[in-house]
Each structure stands twice: as C-alpha cells, then as structure tokens.
Design a protein around this nucleic acid. Structure first.
Lengths: 236, 236
DNA sequence: GTCCGTATTGACCATGTGGTCTAAATCGTT
DNA sequence: AACGATTTAGACCACATGGTCAATACGGAC
C-alpha cells in the first residue's frame, strides 16, 4: 500500500500556527513521512497566504485558534482562490460550532492537536487524494450540531399557527407574484384578471396575514417558508 | 462487552419497507441479535406511524424508497412528534442528495441495503445510545455535498457587483428599517429626521439598487445578503 | 478656500396602494 | 335546491408612495 505511494509525487504541505513551538513540533512529526514535503511554515495568516500562492501546496495544516486575522476567514480566502489546495483545520478544541463553521467555510479535515500523530498523517493522506477526513468523534459532533440547527429552522417554518395556511390557492398565486415585487397591474396581466380583482385578493391576503402593506406581507411570506413550500412538494 | 448489554432493556425496533420480502429478510437478520426486539413491521408509512405511536420503539429502520407517502416526510413527522425514537434510513442508493436530505430531516443513521449485516447491527446499537451513525463512505459523500451547497450560497452573497456596497451608511440604516416593513413616518421617527429626508434616502436607495419600489428594494436586500452582513462582523 | 459627497429639508404632483362596500358567477357540499 | 367558500369585478376615497427640482449644512479632500 505504502509502496504505491512512493511512485507518486510527494504531497506538498504548508503549516500555519502562531505558536512557534507547535509549528516545529508538527513539522518534525510530518517530516518523518517520506512522501510528505513541507514546503513552508508560517506563524501568521498573511505570510501563509503568500506561501500558498507561491508554492500551491496540496495540503495546508491551519491552526484556527489564531488572533488577529482569523483562521476561518483564511480558509474562506483560500477557497475563494479556487485552487487545488486543501485545508485541514487544526485546533485544541472540539467545539461543535467551531467544527461546523470550519467545514462550512471549506476545510477538508479537522484534527485536534491532542490526537495521535498517526491520525494526522492519515488525515493528510486522505485529504490529499480528495477525500474529506473527520475523525468519528468529531463527525458525530458535527452531525448533532447540523441536525439541531435544522430542527430550529423547521420548528419555525412548520409552525402550526402559520397564517399562510389560511390562504386560498389563488391568493397564494397572487402572494407569489408579490414576493417578486410586481405591481397590481403586473399581477393582473400575469393572471389574466382585472386589476380590481388583484386588489381584492391582496386585501384578503393582508387580512389573513394580519399585516397592512405588501412589504410586510412579503416579509411574512419569506420568514414563514412560503417559498420553501412548493419546493417541498417536489423535493422536500 | 456484550454481557453488559444483557442487563439493559432490549432495544425496541420497528421495521418499515414496502417490499415484503425485504421486510422479512431484515427481520430475520435483526432478530438474530439477542438484545434486539422487533416490536412491529409495516409496509406503509401510515401503518408505521401508528405502530410508532403505540410502541414507542427506540429505533425505526425506514426504507426511504417508498412510493405514495414518502419515507423522508415520515421521518419529519416522527421528529415532529418529539419522542425518543431514532430513525435509521435504509435504501439501495448512495445518492448524496438523498443522504443529505435524510440527515437534514433528522435521520440518525443511513445504511445501504447492500452493506454487510454486521454494519446494520452496529448502526442500530450506536443509534440506540444516542449517537449518529454514518458509514465513512457515506459521510464523505455527505460532506462533499454539504460543502458544495455552501460554496454556491457564498458565491452569490460575496458577489463583487453587489449594488448594496454603493449604499452610504445612512442609507443602509434606512434600508434596514425598510426590510422590517416600516413606513416613511415610522422610519422618520426612529431616526429622528423628517419624513422628507427619509423619502430622499429611499429614492437614492432605489437609484443605487436599480429598482422602483420598496418591495423590490427589500427583496434585493434579502437576496443579496444584506442581513448576513452584520452577522458576519461578529461570528463569520 | 473650494469642491465634492453626504445628510438634511421643503414643495409639488402623479400615481400606486390600502380600506370598505357591494355584487355577480362558479363550484363543491349538504 | 340551498348554502358557503372562492373568484371575479366595480366604485369611491384617503393616504402612502415614488419622481423631480431646489436648497442648506457639514465634513473631508485637494
């Protein structure tokens, strides 16, 4: 298994950590692998970015507990560069929110500093070939967090006393057009009905949604998952 | 290890699959475990729901490739019941979108029918004790999909030609109030300026956002991450 | 000091919008 | 056949909204 790797190019790595001792520690550890090539190290995000632009490494090990310029925004910037450089987040804390945000901004791996060195090596190898690596302990934290954040969104949208449910289908059509910023006249033309009729519908919508102008109606619709409804019917 | 389990209560399981043969196959498989107790099986979501309400199982194995009432909506409903019943999605396909949606609606596990039976047993045990179980192969699919969907959102919001950037800070304040559905008079009172001034600001906003009424302005603001901006400054 | 951008305010007017009342045609239900 | 809900439509009115022009005041930039 390891032999096949020998034939490939070495994995180019850049290390980023504001703590110099950590940096050399990690460097020593990573350098022990014969197919790893540490092309640069940095103690600040700014230096790291220029290193990355220069060497185009395969993998960046990024400490995300740095002051000044935050490690997360650094990951975002690297992602925005749209190059083939993968970032593994490195930190001391297994805070679910931090894990979630790191993955969200594009980290391809997340390793705790307390984890065994073998795990770090393995993560680098996996990430280098395009996979995403999250230790099981961390991935379950991630999933928990993910589901919770979605459950909150749900309870808001799926609320039983959602006034949108009182709308008739025609009123929904009209509201749909209102949420696109269309005037009475525009709606009337689209639905092939008179402007007066549109006004009647709109007034009924206001009554049912307990608002008194179109902006509030649109806001209510958007905040209560009006757009999500038709999506649900097709895809969930 | 297994001995400690013996002292605990058995894990109550409900199986749901529209294919009767699959159903009996899974039942046979699951029943072999001494600490599993299959309290019911169903070939339709409706029957399944009443079984779940009746027996309050610890785990539900749910085939999500069923016609008529979809398995995913079934999971949503179970979640909405807010009971301590965990659902493991069971399917033949490792479609990333399907995996993502299943987890999104609250599935605590996702197993392919082609996977080894030992994996299913393990998944049930893990999920029963409150963990989330996704085989590595599937979790990497999930993460890929997750990051892609977020990357798309990003590119929209971070768009360079975002007209919102042309607004002055005062105009942003006014727009902020507009996105809450407040009238000229209301805005004037909140900002301690005259109604006329508000109108001027609003007109300038329309010019800059290239729209011609407040609804469209609000929609533009919402669609281009106006609200997300202040959040970002604090939390990313 | 002068210029430019921003914030402020007033006046005027056309039109869009919201509120209310009435009423006809249609459709499904009882 | 009768009823209720929905969809359609007109009339009328008050007021909010959007468009335009002009003017003052303040701050920073050159």
């Amino acid at each position: 298994m390891r032999n096949t790797v020998e034939f490939k190019k070495k994995i180019k790595i850049v290390l980023v950590d504001d703590n110099v001792e950590h940096l050399s520690g990690i460097r020593e550890l990573v350098s022990m692998e014969s197919n790893f090539d540490v092309v640069g190290t940095a103690t600040s995000v700014n230096v790291a970015m220029s290193l990355i632009k220069k060497y185009r490494p395969n993998v960046v090990l990024m400490d995300i507990n740095m002051p000044e310029k935050d490690g997360l925004t650094a990951i975002m910037e690297i992602e925005k560069m749209d190059v083939d450089t993968k970032v593994i987040a490195l930190t001391g804390y297994d805070d679910p929110d931090l894990i979630f945000r790191a993955i969200k901004v594009g980290a391809k791996g997340y390793i705790l500093k307390t984890m065994a060195s073998a795990q770090l090596i393995y993560a680098i190898e996996e990430v280098a070939v395009g996979k995403i690596y999250l230790p099981t302990a961390l991935s379950s934290r991630f999933f928990d967090y993910f589901q919770k954040s979605f459950k909150e969104e749900h309870t808001v949208v799926t609320d039983d006393d959602n006034l949108l449910t009182y709308l008739t289908s025609r009123e929904e059509e009209v509201l749909d057009l209102l949420t696109q910023g269309i005037t009475y006249k525009g709606v009337a033309e689209k639905l092939f009905i008179s402007e007066t009729t549109v006004k009647t519908h709109v007034n009924n919508i206001f009554q049912k949604l307990q608002v008194n102008d179109r902006t509030q109606a649109v806001l209510y619709a958007l905040n209560n998952g009006f757009l999500s409804k038709r999506k649900m019917k097709l895809s969930v």
